[in-house]
């Protein structure tokens, strides 16, 4: 039994070494540079520009740090549970990760969105998607939906729904680790 277990580990370790070497030689980032924009993991982020509740303009061009895009609405139950987690993660990853909280204003109201942001103390940009164009661009069919984007504009992960506090935190951490 022990011998079998040992065999298993040796073969798995050998396979790991082979795959690791091929992955390194494959130079993934070089291949990704030519990839087009699509709301899918490993593709470039579809670019957009929206106005925030602070009347400033925010866009996805020239990202200075990794970006987390969160689609939400004030009437959405899971968004209410997720909101305090986003605020706490913004504090934890301040200066390392940017958050854009995009309100689906086409199916919400601007005043409700503002009240929600105030209630939960959103201290990151809250953008208003008034005609639902950005939600369409990102194929948002359920909320909350969260995209995790590296500094070079590649989507590295996506969560549909609220995955829980720890899952959210681990995705933020992963985003920071990619950049380091």
């Amino acid at each position: 039994m022990v011998k079998k277990g040992l065999n298993f580990l040796v073969i798995l370790a050998l396979l790991w070494a082979i795959i690791f070497t091929i992955n390194k030689a494959n130079s993934l980032p070089k291949n990704l540079k030519n990839v087009e924009a699509a709301p899918q993991v490993n593709f470039k982020i579809p670019s957009f520009s929206l106005t925030g509740i602070d009347s400033k303009n925010y866009s996805t061009d020239n990202l200075q740090r990794p970006l987390v895009i969160n689609f939400w609405a004030s009437w959405c139950g899971p968004c209410r549970i997720e909101a305090p987690e986003l605020v706490s993660l913004n504090k934890k990853f301040h200066n390392k990760v940017e958050i854009y909280a995009i309100n689906l204003t086409s199916s919400d109201t601007e005043s409700d969105a503002r009240a929600f942001a105030k209630e939960y103390g959103f201290d990151f940009p809250v953008l208003l998607d008034k005609n639902g164009q950005v939600a369409n661009l990102y194929n948002v069919t359920a909320i909350p939906t969260t995209y995790f984007i590296s500094r070079d504009g590649i989507i590295v992960d996506r969560i549909i729904g609220f995955g829980g506090k720890d899952v959210l935190k681990s995705k933020f951490q992963k985003l920071v680790n990619i950049e380091e």
Partner: peptide, 22 residues
């Protein structure tokens, strides 16, 4: 393209390596 690497290889690659080993 592979993502979410764990020890330099993706979860999918871990899965297939596990199957091969089994």
């Amino acid at each position: 393209p592979q993502s979410n690497m764990i020890m330099g290889i993706s979860p999918k690659q871990w899965g297939f390596a596990f199957l091969m080993t089994v």
